[in-house]
Design a protein around this nucleic acid. Structure first.
Lengths: 198, 198
DNA sequence: CGGTTACTTGACTAGCTTCAAGCCTTGTGG
DNA sequence: CCACAAGGCTTGAAGCTAGTCAAGTAACCG
């Protein structure tokens, strides 16, 4: 889902710069804006009382986020945080709805984009059904590989740290490390100089 | 999300009766139809190799399901199964898209319905973040209570079997039973005559 | 009232988490 | 260009606890 920047600006869109680790919005807050990433990377996560995080998604340049809670006017179920210095454009709920009304094709694109997100989240369940760490990690790697269809020919570097894999799968770093080691021994992944290939 | 039955019929909708435990579609299949429940209850779940199931959602009369994979033309990530004798109406992808084009208000309602489903799935993550069984079960019960806003005054019966709670939370029945017992001892839930109140 | 489904309990085990400590890699500033 | 800081990775040992298996008991439905 990507709305042309010019349209956003016409409807009152304002760009804002975020430093690394800065939050765009936080779990529990009431939504006020629609956000689209101009530059950088935004991570969506929820956390429990002990501070453990579960990463729900990572969005990059051109993608939008926070739409569903905004439309429904329900508090954010998760926090959005810049993982790197970023620039996001934001626009009020009111104007966002004007755009949906004025541009049926954007409305339609949004429907497909939401469908995509539901589909991804269902797939994510596959990661969570897996009872062994190996199953979870493998599902995660598979899901991720499918997202980069150019790369299906050979093993490619996995652009995640062990901690990120842990946050996505709900495992501990140490478990991820030990499991990946085991997986590399049986040839399911390659680890060269600490870098992970799948 | 509910489309008027007459509209569905006008666009070639056909009703089909399902016995208990019969599948509407299965994980991996290619979607061909849009489904809406006329009567009964449909459970959506994914399973791993060992046959363990994770329930993703339960839909009832008037609700539709299977939309996202159909729109995206991607294989079903989960299986849909009647939990009780049911009747579902189905309509081809082509005609479903005609409806979306012919009725902008249905298209809009669908967008909000998808937003709702994304929101619910994000909330569901809260269930999975919880590392202790107690945390998971409590999150599940909270989520469920919020869905019945009429019932917020006192403790109400929980309309799920322990097995269903287990399938939703990814725990084992025995663990659910033992945890609920513990929770009833500290007053978080009530168990009267094997029935659960929260 | 008989059969089926749901619930319960106990004992045991595997393996994930936790804690603690140390190593490697990368980027930055002098 | 080098040194050092910071973040990421790795390892070991020990404990906890959810899962498993097995064997019941209780409730519900026709």
């Amino acid at each position: 889902m990507h709305i042309d920047d010019n349209i956003l600006i016409t409807y009152g869109g304002v760009a804002r710069k975020l430093s690394k680790s800065e939050n765009v919005f936080e779990e529990g807050e009431k939504p006020r804006f629609f956000y689209q990433i101009v530059e950088g990377e935004i991570k969506i996560f929820s956390s429990n009382i002990e501070g453990k995080e579960l990463t729900q998604a990572i969005y990059v340049e051109g993608e939008s986020f926070g739409g569903p809670p905004l439309l429904l006017e329900k508090p954010y179920p998760s926090t959005a945080q810049a993982t790197t210095q970023s620039v996001v454009m934001r626009i009020s709920r009111e104007n966002f709805i004007h755009i949906l009304n004025d541009f049926p094709e954007i409305s339609r694109a949004m429907l497909y984009s939401f469908a995509e997100r539901i589909y991804e989240k269902s797939e994510m369940a596959q990661v969570w059904v897996g009872h062994s760490p190996e199953e979870k990690i493998e599902q995660f790697l598979i899901k991720n590989k499918l997202k980069n269809p150019n790369d299906h020919e050979e093993e490619n570097i996995v652009p995640f740290t062990r901690q990120q894999i842990a946050d996505f799968t709900g495992l501990r770093v140490e478990t991820v490390i030990r499991t990946l080691k085991k997986m590399s021994e049986i040839g399911k992944v390659k680890i060269i100089n600490h870098k992970l290939y799948y």
